[in-house]
Design a protein around this nucleic acid. Sequence first.
DNA 1: AGTGAAAATGTCAGCGCTGTCAATCAGCCT
DNA 2: AGGCTGATTGACAGCGCTGACATTTTCACT
Lengths: 350, 350
Amino acid sequence: MRRAAAPGRGSATIEVVAGQAGVSPKTVSRVINNERGVRAETRERVLTAIQQLDYQPNLAARGLAGDRSFLIGLFYDQPGDYLSEFQTGAVQRCREANLHLMVEPLEAASPDVGRDLSTLIRQLRLEGVILLPPLSDLPAVQAILAAADIPAVHIAPMHAQDDAPSVDTDDRAAVRQLTTELLQRGHRRIGFMLGRAGHRATEQRYLGFADAMHASGLDIDPQLVQAGNFEFAEGLECARRMLGCHPRPTAIFASNDDMAAAAVSAARQMGLALPRQLSVVGFDDAPVATMVWPQLTTVRQPVREIGRVAAELISQYQPHRQGWPRPVPRRHLPLELVLRGSIAPAPRDC
Amino acid sequence: MRRAAAPGRGSATIEVVAGQAGVSPKTVSRVINNERGVRAETRERVLTAIQQLDYQPNLAARGLAGDRSFLIGLFYDQPGDYLSEFQTGAVQRCREANLHLMVEPLEAASPDVGRDLSTLIRQLRLEGVILLPPLSDLPAVQAILAAADIPAVHIAPMHAQDDAPSVDTDDRAAVRQLTTELLQRGHRRIGFMLGRAGHRATEQRYLGFADAMHASGLDIDPQLVQAGNFEFAEGLECARRMLGCHPRPTAIFASNDDMAAAAVSAARQMGLALPRQLSVVGFDDAPVATMVWPQLTTVRQPVREIGRVAAELISQYQPHRQGWPRPVPRRHLPLELVLRGSIAPAPRDC
DNA sequence: AGTGAAAATGTCAGCGCTGTCAATCAGCCT
DNA sequence: AGGCTGATTGACAGCGCTGACATTTTCACT
């Protein structure tokens, strides 16, 4: 039995469009889905009808009939600026591909991470997922995804999977270059503040630092390498420990801007004049980078662009062909060095 | 013709569950949708079958048959910490209600804001939307929503609509209290830095300041009220202008922490000792509040909780009854004052 | 003009649920 | 026991679209 149509809501159906264009519903469907095998003139006619009727295909019906969902999942562990920038980029790209993005929190540390993910995937029938670090490196997550045969794009994974595309930036080179800037300004004792364990960024940024030091024939004083976790409070402790060393470092490279800001703060509290007595470098070009004085020399990440690219990669997956194009796509996005007032030549008296 | 089922993907259908439980599919449907009129014992049997088969109803099919989408839209204009905290809370609540959240950027300033919104609503067939400021005050947006008959929850709207629920916090009272703290410490010349025009927060926070000043019989020096826009850079300018006044203010109340941090920075650059020569107060308890020295006295917003409540309100809408419960739900969430080192007694010599 | 192959278009069932309404059942009264 | 009422349950079509396959059209070439 035919029920009353919802009043006003929703738009015309595909049949109405077909009538208006003088073709069968199937042909309209072909046009909507951009299938080949429709004469240009016919396509034009259909498109016109769609416009005239302001027709929007019914997602649920398309999904049910075609066994699709048009949904991409974006999973994150930590809310924050990074996430919201990233998702803004990803949504933009999804719109162009006529996909939609479901942004979902997922606790990396929770023992239920697998079950939670699994439920979401099956409930939403996601066509693909994007994993933000550190989720991109969780074996439990990868297992679920593989079992469900869901394509995943990993953002800055520590260990790139052979069969999973990834997007990252060359943090190592950027840190190497910025460390070299410090070396060129005469710094020899440089402290390094590590990020949270288990992140690619943590590893790569340190390696870049080591690269530059070794290339200049300098040894790294283990006392001057402190384990932070990307957070300000921890950065404060690290900085204090470093600045308590003798001889004191003349520069500190922090793995992100929050910790760099902490270094600035700690130094100031110890009465040091910045940047004369201490140079500080950070990473991310976070808002705080321009909120401290002197403003931080840092590295700008194109976060929104990374989001855009991640969404683009997902849409390259061919479900019914062989899956990912070969070789599996990997994108490395360029980083931009941002030189600001927080670095200066090394003091003489050191 | 029956096509081959997708291999492995997806779960059992409602028919399989019905078979296992020895009831008709319709009864399973009743249980899933929590309809009344199912005997407790029958319900139990169905639930068991669902568990055993790990059945997940097909969203697309439910949507198509029931003319629903199970989707709530969250629209934002500005990415950032606020957004990502908010959405985390909203998603949590949505999960409990078996709804899903689509987070979508929408440029408030764009002339296409209406068209963009309209497309999204019709494409996704959203069942409700949450509007973050300043979208919550855009007439164009409200018109679209009303025309499409979509329930909307407004977050911190300037002008609460009679027929639209809203969630907000009593910024006015919080600022009044904190201003009083300054007054009690002997401050008389207090500068106030406004937020971006068009936000409820901007208006309410200023009113709270004015309340406290007037309650103490003090006049507000127009020179000491400067128009910022919630951003650090602008805050820096505002602070410089204020601190250039004679006599200099002994305290500055900024409408958010970024601008308060700017005030700290500006004061420091002018050689003032903080908090001895200048007290500073912010709002939000943003990360930067504990990254500057001295740490900012501020107001903590329960952002995640606001998100949760917004999602809860949306699910109170009764599409086929009279719409919103009466009176239209409005929630005011409590704010927490956070007293930190950035305020001190007013200096004598002023 | 006639032929065959490829291109374009159409037909129709069915995706997995839920709305409508009909059928059945349990409990209660006379 | 029979009849009545309200509570449960079931039968069935159809939501709007797309997959598989059938049919028609087009067009190059004989």
